[in-house]
């Protein structure tokens, strides 16, 4: 039982995912991060069979990193999505398929456009402005249908995202905690949904970091995982 959703805006993508890990009715962890950055401007939320999800996220991450190292240029989001889709499509007809559903969000720095892909374990791919997966699909899709609009700004998009979180808390019987990332031209940033103004915090952080600390061309392999909320 998991729940993830994502929203694209004018020049960014927001991805939120629950952080619960457990088996059947027992929850063993409430701060498991399920959103993996898989490139300088690319992140992926994985749901599905617990073991498969982390293996798959790792596999994608390392292959995309290899591409980045070999070509000194990261694979842009549309191509990355096609690649991930192919892995899943080949996997479903193999002897040990990955049971993984993916939301892949990224910012294409070459065209300055945000991208969001909805992928399921069969290798189905949809290129859509907002998406949801898992049990939250039944309540958050309608929320996003109502509130999302084209070229939505960051704060408004975050409001929509919070509306979705509230809806899940209100309508889904399982208790979820969420973490969230924002992907834009500067990279993948984690957002603290509990803070008063996460966007202001993010802007401050980016402003403080930029002049002295330029983005590394190749992200280091042991870059800290996104902080659990």
């Amino acid at each position: 039982m998991e729940c993830a959703f994502a929203i694209t805006g004018k020049d960014f993508v927001l991805i939120a995912s629950d952080m619960s890990a457990g088996r059947s009715i027992i929850q063993m962890k409430s701060n498991e991060n399920k959103i993996t950055p898989v490139g300088p401007n690319l992140a992926m939320a994985c749901g599905g069979e617990p073991g498969d999800t982390s293996r798959f996220a790792d596999y994608v991450d390392r292959n995309l990193r290899l591409y980045h190292i070999r070509n000194n240029f990261p694979l842009p989001p549309p191509s990355a999505a096609s690649w991930v889709r192919r892995i899943l499509a080949e996997s479903i007809r193999s002897r040990s398929p990955y049971a993984v559903n993916v939301l892949l969000g990224g910012f294409d720095t070459t065209t300055s456009k945000p991208h969001l892909y909805w992928l399921d374990y069969l290798g189905t791919k949809a290129d859509i402005p907002y998406a949801a997966q898992g049990v939250g699909m039944y309540v958050t899709l309608s929320t996003m249908d109502k509130w999302w609009y084209e070229n939505i700004e960051r704060r408004e998009a975050l409001d929509v995202l919070n509306k979705c979180v509230d809806e899940v808390k209100k309508r889904v019987t399982i208790k979820f905690d969420f973490n969230c990332v924002l992907i834009d031209k500067d990279g993948v940033h984690s957002l603290d949904l509990k803070s008063q103004d996460p966007i202001a915090e993010l802007e401050a952080k980016v402003a403080a970091m930029k002049p002295s600390d330029p983005e590394p061309i190749i992200p280091s392999s042991d870059a800290p995982a996104i902080a659990a909320a």
Binding site: T124, D127, I128, A131, M137, Y138, L141
Partner: peptide
């Protein structure tokens, strides 16, 4: 339409 059974996922498929 692209759906996942009864749920509609995309309208640009």
């Amino acid at each position: 339409r692209l759906g996942q059974q009864s749920v509609g996922v995309a309208m640009n498929f």
